[in-house]
Amino acid sequence: MKKTLLTSAISAVIATSAFAEGELNIFNWGNYTNPDLITKFEKEFDVKVTITDFDSNDTALAKIKAGGHGFDIVVPSGTYIPIFVGEGLLMEAKPNEMENFKHMDPQWVDVAFDPGRNYSVPWQWGTVGVTVNTSVYSGDINTAAVIFDPPEELKGKINVVPEMNDVMGLAIHYVGGETCTGDKEILKKVRDPLVKAKKDWLSMDYGNIEKFAKGDLSAGVNWNGASFRTRIENADIAFGYPQTGYPVWMDNAAILSDAKNVDNAKAFLNFIMDPENAALISSFARYANGIVGSDAFMPEDMKTAPEIVVPEELKATANIAETCPPEVSRIYTQIWTELQK
């Protein structure tokens, strides 16, 4: 009995140490990593890569805080990077000292959540706007009024993606507030129109590409990449950037402070800052990336798509998403809960 216990313990230890040679464990959003990118990385660096999915920043944070997770790289949203850093969960990997850092788009180097890029590397970024079927509604689509004060022909055929921070951001700017405002007056002005507009909404779902393509939905709050994919199915679909202010989000890859495969992880961060590889990432989920020079490698339809390349005249009103203080988040959650009733 003792002998079997001993041998099994030894073999377990040996097995784990053999396991850890040439490995990289990535913790990313579901269906967000291009398999071609991974194959390319595996071949170039002779590393075995595993990808594990998470469905929300909160799940990722909870799992990593608990410890013993075995991941090396995590790809949270920019708004959560300060939370991760504050908890000491990210390694200061200094991507700004890596070889491919020179390819990073200057506008994404000094971001509020990671000034100077000491922790993270851009994965993809996108915008939140309105998707409209132009054959149903031919008015101005660059406004959030399409959702919050819908015209007749769109009533009853609107979907709002149930992503609290994005929709709240859109709504707050629609009534004239600032990002992450805690002003009770403004928030009252947000809640009442939201609840009123909900009556004209059909659903609050994520997977809506087929519904737009078939015509069950005519308008909705959506991410630009999802809207782009919808336009491929149905050419009448257009993406509007609400001029009162549209949220901009970015997902970033970072190394965890207790990562086991640090060298491979650093090699990976350097790898995705290369323009060709950044283009691979973008071509998969169809969102823009933060690396200059990747345009040359992007798929044709993404180079000129208005969803990916924001038109000049509409650029000004972008609002980079920020991490709201906990009290403010709490109020938003209350409004959101009331909205979902």
């Binding site: 579901g30 997977g207 590409i209 994919r229 989920a285």
Partner: peptide
């Protein structure tokens, strides 16, 4: 579940 927020 992981697919939900990106591509289904």
């Amino acid at each position: 579940l992981g697919q939900l927020r990106r591509v289904v």
